[in-house]
Amino acid sequence: MKFADFRRKLAQYWYRFSQNKASIAGLIITVTIVLVTILAPYVTPYPEHAGVFVDFRNTFKPPSSANWFGTDQVGRDIFTRSIFGYRFSLIMAGTVLGIAVPLGVVLGLVSGYFGGWIESLIMRLTDIVLALPPLAMAIAVSAVLGSDLGNTMIALAMIWWTWYARLVHGMVVSLRNEEYVEAAQIMGASKLHIMFREILPNCAPAILVKTTLDAAFVIELSAGLSFLGLGVRPPEPALGTMVAEGARYLPANWWMTVFPALAILVLIFGLNWLADGLRDVLDVDL
């Protein structure tokens, strides 16, 4: 594709994306949060507050120009800890989806394309796994294997792939009868070529939109887990843990709960809006 064509296409995508103001907000929120999180040690006012740190002169300070979100019971800056808290959320979402999406997509492709007993096997397995509630599963795994971040993430990934297997399976079943797939078959293209080069690219937009939406889900879930005390170990900050700790000091020291909770909310909204925008641009019907 020529550069001018590419620019035109990009402009066209942007036009469609920007028709919805919320999707622009979503894009800005998501990109800002990801950047700030990566650069957390350099952009937060008190990066040392993220670890073991005590400052008893500054405990329970309400929001001020020095501490935008106030301080907690040992004098740590809540703004700094919220930004670092995003780290846990994003790592969680990245790892869970990083395992679940490729796994689910490949299983969905294989079952949808080959059909027959392979399809029955994979789709019945999917049905069974889908019956397990993710939060309960994560708690159970943590209980058995110990409250370890790695275990929790693997537990979630082992449930999450099913959604992608289902989504992709459904699309492949309809796409495999498209005429371009039949044309490739007549020409003698290999099954791998047909699955990965002809069919998969046509599922990609839907997968992308669903992944964005699911990132928000996983983050929500990880907040829930850390609220229950699973996943991250103190003093490493997690937004859920901060909300849980802050709740003990309600209502007097409201900022300890409200700001970390808002931080979760903003990211989830951002991701959802971004997914909406992508859906418009990529013409996906989920």
């Binding site: 371009y180 490739a184 007549i186 020409m187 002809e198 046509n202």
Partner: peptide, 23 residues
């Protein structure tokens, strides 16, 4: 070889004309 009825679906929407012909 075969030429299909529906020009809309007989070409893969995500592959360029060149890629389609190279296969």
């Amino acid at each position: 070889q075969m030429v299909f009825q529906n020009p809309g679906s007989s070409l893969n929407p995500r592959r360029t004309v060149g890629k389609t012909l190279e296969l």
